[in-house]
Nucleic acid binder design. Sequence first.
DNA 1: CGCCAAACTTGACCCAGATCAAAGAAGCCA
DNA 2: TGGCTTCTTTGATCTGGGTCAAGTTTGGCG
Lengths: 242, 242
Amino acid sequence: MNAPVLANVKCSECPIRHRAVCSRCDTDELAVLEQIKIYRNFKAGDQVFWRGEPMDYVASIVSGVATLGKTLEDGRTQMVGLLLPSDFIGRPGRTKVEFDVTAVTDVTLCCFERQPFERLLVATPRIAQRLVEIALDELDAARDWMLLLGRKTAREKIATFIDMLVQRNSVDHGITPALALALPLTREEIANYLGLTLETVSRHLSALKSEGVLNFSDRRNFVVTDLEALRAISGDESDDCL
Amino acid sequence: MNAPVLANVKCSECPIRHRAVCSRCDTDELAVLEQIKIYRNFKAGDQVFWRGEPMDYVASIVSGVATLGKTLEDGRTQMVGLLLPSDFIGRPGRTKVEFDVTAVTDVTLCCFERQPFERLLVATPRIAQRLVEIALDELDAARDWMLLLGRKTAREKIATFIDMLVQRNSVDHGITPALALALPLTREEIANYLGLTLETVSRHLSALKSEGVLNFSDRRNFVVTDLEALRAISGDESDDCL
DNA sequence: CGCCAAACTTGACCCAGATCAAAGAAGCCA
DNA sequence: TGGCTTCTTTGATCTGGGTCAAGTTTGGCG
């Protein structure tokens, strides 16, 4: 991890202040974090961590998108997580990195040296509590993804992926889902995320376009023209059961 | 969750005392847990939780094997976790069950009412710390499984599954891996775990048998006769990189 | 002991998605 | 502006694993 060290933003003004691992901290606790944190910047495409290397830092994503990936000997790869602002990288008590972490866009990380952070975790229950929540949320997401990888068809996988983008986009913007959005990943990266090949991704995106479900303005940007249909295709539990 | 309530075992004599969510607790903290815990028993095949029902309890598995499953509308199912003694069920802060939890063998649970447990989590950092570890371990396991589901062939999946059984079995027994073991699941359950069909599981188990890698004495019990080959087939990172 | 249901095996066939191949876009920098 | 490279689309073909369909083994129980 040899990225430029940036001037730190004050925690109180941090964009992820209310969602990251520090979100429960009071002013005094923030002051302690402020002491040990270091901002680092990565360019799109940079490798943040290599699998197997010693993990001296843990970090929160401040801005940008990164991916967690695993690779088989022969080169097959599977993305096992998409890291967005406020997501946490690393795990206390482990000294080696388990996954390749790659910056998809330019990324800024808020890094803490692992050992001081571990001591802090013992001394500061609020951080530990928040970390439990974050870990359990990710576990739920990972399990949803296991259902997708193990049982969904290519068409369902792609519809689920797009629907996920819609939902995430809606969280940031207001109540009404914003239906104009951009793919954060290339076809190949989407394929790695969904357990498919890039050709299959391309074919099914084209199909959804010609069916009038999606409308692409260029290869990245598109509008969901039939959200109802998209949800039906995704194969998820209909929302009636709540 | 309407299972018989059993006489509680004293925490200090509990078989999972040193591994479960309570493992870091001191004597005083154990005394508090002792107050609010209730043992419950389930028979093989019983449903412990149904997806979507209110979750009033969280629990640790004391003995037996249970599975976490998700289901698509049309009946396709995917197992997303295998729960073994000391594993934790439920998550603080969530009121609804996210997965079907099914007892595969007879199962004994150590249950805590959710709300008292959540208060305890805030008041007792040692429990929260242990819960972070458990959650992060499960997250790592879930991510390994995502690689398996997304990218491995049927043959590799089955070899990986058997190898996992060998490793787990070795933890319980001594240093030398005990190579005589029993499948804890039916062919259909294995298929649900691996994202395959029961026919494919059966075919590949037969193949491994006829290749001399496994030797079945009946449909459950077998001996790994060529561990080397099994590991090679599983397609995992060769262990040289440590 | 013998019946029955559940679990398992094996075969024949088919299809979704992988693989192989070859053209288009779209940036991007000189 | 033109020539790179990188990303994407589309087509043709192949195949691993799914599906359908018999059988076979096993174990539980009256």
